[in-house]
Design a binder for these strands. Structure first.
Lengths: 121, 121
DNA sequence: ATACTGATTCGATATCTATCGATATCTCAA
DNA sequence: TTGAGATATCGATAGATATCGAATCAGTAT
């Protein structure tokens, strides 16, 4: 098993039309379901190593980075791989193999969705 | 006895001038220190129960809520208290006792800081 | 094929965390 | 002072998670 399924923070079929998962945190109390969905994202970014990996990808030229470009975060290579998988499972990153290397990129609608959640505008 | 110190996402002395902890995630790779600080926040919101509690406080009239107003999240009273403490330790909430009740409110600079982190604008 | 490099998966482990019931603390009122 | 209601702390526990080395898989080049 372990099919690394992206969890639907935003509708995976049509990321352009991306309806964010939830209204702003401050608008009304979140429902249990909304909280479950949104917490997955926050949790994924709730580890320093993952946050650095995510930031490294997000800030990299062309909006994508090879694992080899970002692995220098002070943990072993399997651990890097583990964290990237978590970010992928949370729907924050996507990956694609091109030849020898695997490239990760930020799922664009996600940042917008999180921003909306925080009520920033 | 465990003084529940707020961690400095923003400078605690002068929340009005609040310099956020970090530049946008997408601007450059975060440093280990920045990641450590920011991850604490995300981690605090990375639990569904905590997210609901936070949202309940944030959306409550007057920007604050008594524990009794928000405890209906499906877990025991000690667990609610535990989660509120975590949110406080992460610098997301503050609390004040008024008579019999304890009121929690959102640390206002925090939402802005998180928004900035996500690069939403 | 064989060898080499990059990346993921596996299996083990130590630590962390969410949860609970019981208990303690605090405040007000009788 | 005694009692009751609201929160917080304590102690225990089951489950999650970050981490590693070893093994494996996937491509490329020799």
């Amino acid at each position: 098993m372990s099919n690394t399924e992206a969890l639907p923070l935003i509708t995976p079929e049509a990321p352009e039309t991306a309806a964010p998962c939830c209204p702003p945190l401050t608008e009304r109390p979140m429902s249990p379901e909304e909280a479950e969905t949104a917490a997955r994202m926050f949790k994924a970014l709730g580890d320093p190593v993952r946050l650095r990996l995510f930031s490294a990808v997000a800030s990299h030229d062309g909006g994508e980075a090879c694992v080899c470009d970002i692995s220098d975060v002070g943990v072993s290579q399997p651990t890097v791989s583990h964290h990237l998988k978590k970010l992928k499972e949370a729907g924050l990153l996507t990956s694609e193999r091109r030849g020898t290397w695997v490239y990760y990129r930020v799922e664009p609608a996600v940042l917008a969705a999180m921003g909306q959640l925080l009520g920033t505008r």
